[in-house]
Amino acid sequence: MLIDAQSLLHRIADRTILDLREFRVTQGEHALLLGPSGSGKTTLINILTGLMTPTSGTVLIDGRPMTGVSPAARDALRRDRIGLVFQTLRLVSALTVRQNLSLAQNLGPSASDPAEINTLIERVGLSHRADARPRDLSQGESQRAAIARALCTRPALLVADEPTSALDDTNAQSMIDLLLSSAAASGSTLLIATHDHRIRARFAHAVELQPLAVAA
């Protein structure tokens, strides 16, 4: 089981943000996490990736604990097993596309591999922009660079937060094509958090969260 989350509860003051009995994803089973704003999607993503500690509950990533361990252990597990495509992308502005990937690779668990970086840049269609800095990229190019960066350590789990919400229908489907094909080529399992129901039909496994109407 790649993701095994049980009895997750997260509260802020007297407000319950997330209350989820179970969330499980097997290796190779690409999954969609749906829900409107306020449903706890981002909270769940942050808990699964170790960026946030739940009030209670457990998370295992590829059999290793993400909860109940030190921040250093969570960071190490995230580096080893997870690639993240943030909604805000978070490319390093002073570095080129190639340098962003090289930095991510150097911070990961494996040795630097320039050939792998070139392969990823080509795969996402950015060979002609490899030496451009983020400020010189279009939004679509920046998203592609962020996907390549997330995949450069060959993560078991690729997580993307709202990758299509700002795109028109054609570009939204193209982005999902790119994410699915890139994940497959890297042997990664894809988890997308979104409120975009246009892509629902592309995923056999989908979980829909609803806002919690009553504060506990």
Rank of each mutant, 00 (worst) to 15 (best):
A213H: 03
E122P: 05
A31N: 00
T153V: 09
R149Q: 12
H195E: 10
I82A: 10
Q139R: 13
Q99W: 03
I176K: 06
D168W: 06
T53I: 14
L77K: 03
P211C: 03
T164A: 02
D196S: 07
R123T: 14
H205Y: 04
D75W: 07
A215F: 01
E122T: 13
V159R: 10
A72F: 06
N118A: 15
S174C: 07
G28H: 08
V92M: 14
R98D: 11
A73P: 09
Q173F: 08
H30A: 14
P65A: 04
Q139E: 12
T43Y: 02
L212G: 05
L34N: 11
A156P: 01
P71L: 11
C152W: 07
D62Y: 09
R24N: 12
V124Y: 03
A146S: 10
L180M: 14
L179K: 04
I61R: 02
L101C: 08
N118E: 15
I82G: 09
E141K: 03
H10L: 12
L89C: 07
A201W: 02
L103P: 00
H128E: 15
H10Y: 13
R78S: 13
T53R: 15
S37M: 02
L20T: 07
R78E: 13
L32G: 01
G140Y: 01
D75K: 11
P114G: 13
D113R: 03
M175Q: 12
I61Q: 04
L9S: 05
T67V: 11
L151P: 06
R24S: 13
R64Q: 14
A31S: 03
G68L: 03
R21L: 03
A204T: 13
L60H: 05
R123Y: 10
L120D: 09
L84W: 10
A183W: 01
L191G: 02
L101I: 08
L2A: 09
K41R: 01
G40H: 09
L60C: 01
D131G: 11
V69M: 11
G40E: 09
A115C: 08
T189H: 07
I12K: 08
L191H: 02
